[in-house]
Simulated assay, not measured.
Amino acid sequence: MAEVKIGYLLPTRDQAVRGGDELTRLITIAQRAEALEFGSVWAGDSPLARPRADPLVLLAAVAVATRRVTLGTAVLLPALRHPILMAHQLATLDRLTDGRLIVGMGAGFPTAGTQRQFDAIGVPFRSRVSRLEESIEAMRRLWSGKDVSFAGRHFDFRDVTLAPAPAGPTGPPIWLAGSGEPALRRVARLGDGWLPYPPAVEDYARDRATIHQTATRPVTSALYATLTLDEDPQRARELQRRSIEPYYNAPLEVIEKIQAMFAGPPSDAAVWLNSYIEAGARHIVIRLAADDHLAALEGFAASVLPRLHR
């Protein structure tokens, strides 16, 4: 079996929900995740629909505070940004990390809150998927370090050269979120990785096989998973509810039908995650729904990490 990496999502949204603005604490948590042998640290993106610290600014700070751990966005919404500026930011961040960056991207989940976010920024919501695809093409060209011209449906520019170039010749890997036939085709055509959150492992295995049968490049199979740990399953579920419902402004019962979520004892959590690993997941990004995120991180590292098939 290929090496399996376990990543950790920084609780930027959780901190914002509770009115916290101690961003340096997030850097401390990232450093602790590195010390606990997590393979990666991630930050989410949503300036208005689910407000939180800007992921690229935060990850720049984490970049200089860490040495080994991979850094990633889970996930960035490129349709909200111009690809020249976004490519410039990501190339600079990739240089700061010495090539430790993964750019997780998504189009934006179709909810009323997400649409209001696009409306406020002045980007047509219905164009978000085509903007995502066009942005990927434009950024990969810009990361070459050469003089670039681009003519697309949404973006048109001439004779642009970015500096600095990314750490590697092709730029940081781009991982795409999404499920369903159009999204899977997009991953197979454009992605270096796939970062979904299907609640059923059978769906994960089926979709992964579809991608790998049609992909035009090697694709890393990843997973975004939310966990709440407690020996009492009922207590774990109530804790998860307290965390998830203000996070999304939606009932837990709605979110768990869409996303991979677990609440219960650490031993059962390991069995659940191992089922995805057996189905082909090779990089799992863990979001911990908890009151005390540093304690939850320590607890996961002590009670679940050693049980995972890596």
Results as ranks from 00 to 15, higher is better:
G191H: 05
V271E: 11
L132E: 03
L10V: 08
M86E: 12
L294A: 09
G280N: 10
E181F: 03
D291G: 14
A138S: 04
G7N: 09
R242I: 09
R235P: 03
A260R: 11
R206S: 13
L59C: 08
L252F: 04
H283F: 15
H88G: 06
A65S: 13
Y276H: 11
G19A: 09
A281S: 13
E22A: 10
D119L: 07
F300G: 00
M1A: 13
V41R: 01
M105Y: 01
L80R: 08
I277F: 07
G7F: 08
G193K: 09
A270R: 00
R25L: 02
R186F: 01
L76N: 04
M1R: 11
L101T: 03
A281C: 10
P55G: 10
P196Y: 14
S267P: 00
G168I: 05
D156F: 05
P199L: 10
P83I: 02
R241Y: 02
V69P: 04
E253S: 13
A215F: 01
D232Q: 05
H309A: 12
R208D: 08
A138H: 03
Q259G: 00
P47F: 07
A250L: 09
A183K: 12
G113W: 07
R208T: 06
R310S: 12
G180N: 12
R140K: 15
A53I: 10
L56E: 05
Y247P: 00
R241F: 02
L273H: 10
V62H: 05
D54E: 15
E253L: 05
L48V: 14
A60Y: 00
F262K: 03
P198N: 13
L132F: 03
P55Y: 09
D192F: 07
Y247H: 12
K257R: 15
D156A: 14
Y248C: 06
N274S: 13
Y224N: 06
Y8W: 14
T170M: 08
P218G: 08
L190V: 06
M139N: 09
S149Y: 13
F125I: 04
T214C: 01
F155W: 12
F38T: 00
L26D: 11
L176R: 11
G44F: 05
P233K: 13
A263F: 09
F150I: 13
L10T: 08
L227Y: 02
D54V: 05
S243C: 15
S267T: 02
V160K: 02
L77E: 04
L80F: 13
V17S: 03
A120Q: 14
G104Y: 10
A200V: 12
G108T: 02
A209G: 10
P233A: 14
F262Y: 15
T220H: 06
R208K: 14
E298T: 01
V304Q: 00
